[in-house]
Design a protein around this nucleic acid. Sequence first.
DNA 1: CTGTTAGCGCATTCAA
DNA 2: TTGAATGCGCTAACAG
Lengths: 316, 316
Amino acid sequence: MAQKLTILDIAKLAGVGKSTVSRVLTQDPRVKPATREKVEQVIRESGYVPSKSAQSMRGGTSKVIGVVVSRLDSPSENKAVRGILAVIYAAGYDAVIMESQFSAAKTREHLAVLEKRNVDGVIVFGFSGFDDTILDGFAQRAVVIAVDTDSVSSVSYDNKGMIHLAMQQLSEQGLTHISYIGVDPADRTTGLFRLDAYLEACRERHIEPCYQTGELSYESAYKLTDKVLNAQTQAIVCASDTLAMGVAKRLQEIQRTEVVVSGVGATDLLSFMFPNTFSIDPGYFEAGQRAAHLLFQHLQQGAPVTHLTQQACTLL
Amino acid sequence: MAQKLTILDIAKLAGVGKSTVSRVLTQDPRVKPATREKVEQVIRESGYVPSKSAQSMRGGTSKVIGVVVSRLDSPSENKAVRGILAVIYAAGYDAVIMESQFSAAKTREHLAVLEKRNVDGVIVFGFSGFDDTILDGFAQRAVVIAVDTDSVSSVSYDNKGMIHLAMQQLSEQGLTHISYIGVDPADRTTGLFRLDAYLEACRERHIEPCYQTGELSYESAYKLTDKVLNAQTQAIVCASDTLAMGVAKRLQEIQRTEVVVSGVGATDLLSFMFPNTFSIDPGYFEAGQRAAHLLFQHLQQGAPVTHLTQQACTLL
DNA sequence: CTGTTAGCGCATTCAA
DNA sequence: TTGAATGCGCTAACAG
């Protein structure tokens, strides 16, 4: 274990001063190419590894960004996290990930920890009841995903667009009797916005709205299905794939598989299980990428508070 | 932003020396209770946050453990990660999570990064083709999950036990014609061990084995279903819930829903979609917890290389 | 272009 | 029981 090598050892081995080694490490251009090459070779051969802790302490930047997800096992957040990781990892950053479990208190705790860890920035996944004043400490070094914010930059999903897309898709197939199943409007993004979009789309098309809202679970949607179903129903738009799964199951049970079901989330399982089904991809992965990019912009040049909306795209 | 507070500021504010403050921070008993109380109060009121970077550099311990998952969106690994986080977070540690994507090369890269970050230890999720010599650098500071290892401690799932449990469950229901669908035995854990267990269980019960192996996907299992199905088939045991889902779908299609299907993974969706179904819980969450505990044992007292096996338990 | 000098914030000696 | 002094490994002035 040559783990005890320090910058000074390298300096001696290369026959230069420690600052020269440091300059090589920091990509400082003020170093003669020959010298640089020499140092780099010694570093390579000795297997020297600069201590991040020391660098972090000295330079003030830890090359770490904190990510607070609401649930580690949420498929949507998972996709977004992957987008985040792809970007920050490419930039030589790493992520410490924490789970808020939809609790503002936990979020606050986690942010405190991240702060004391000297992370360069944070990306937080919002949830219903999320309050962005929690992020005051991180000022211009935070980006929020999936929720409206005021004082801090954000990347949100196009909640209205997704539903409009679904409605449009169905309209193009000539369907006119379209119901909707969503979640409690108390949840602004998944609940209210998507329901509003449905109602709006109905108005545009002179369709009589027919909808129900409940919990975000298979069971809830399953139970609600009958309430939005009548003899003429041709399609049911759902606020999420989870709901769509519950609806599709019920439809299958009562032999109404001719009814088209749409969900949101791009879950491959949905279309595998039920052919007469499609799902809208809200662009989770891309949203994650953009959130990371946005954060970097803030870190490098104090960019102004920005609100991005991730476009959704249809998917079979 | 009182973020610029240092230990010296606190010392002044409390009217003591910086070392005393340090002692309070490190739980050093050699501090008069009154003094300690005073200092703690100042810390609380000032919102002072000790710099982890500095602590880490000085003490050599960063209170960070690295976690390398194979896929961020694997439900099983997700559950395990939650177990890990629960334990390490309670101990004041944090996790930086990385994704290997089943690539030994990526794993190696990530470990290098983690090393230079001075993490105290790592927990790595194994995958087919995983080679634990990769972990040489981490010697006694690593724990592997879900794969057999030699030189490093591990927590593995009870691959044989899960299948035996499923077979037993079915036997108790009086079923005797039980088929199996698994994955390529080239994958030792999910493939070979589970298949072996099936064959073994058949032998014990004088059941004629009937099985197929393929990929770990709905489609694969869906297609394979017919090949293990005959008029007498009463049940199909699957190596995972994903497979079970594909099988159940096919059975439903051909009106053979009287055939019981079992999977592994405790996915709630499976039993929701198909009533005549059950899943074995390999104890992912608990495995994560145990892995974390095991790692701590290594960190604190150089425990010897240990191999734990996580017991599985049935689930409806 | 390069070596020398000073700290960064903290934990740990060593005296007192 | 406490304060003063000494680096940890590194980067950023400051001089050559």
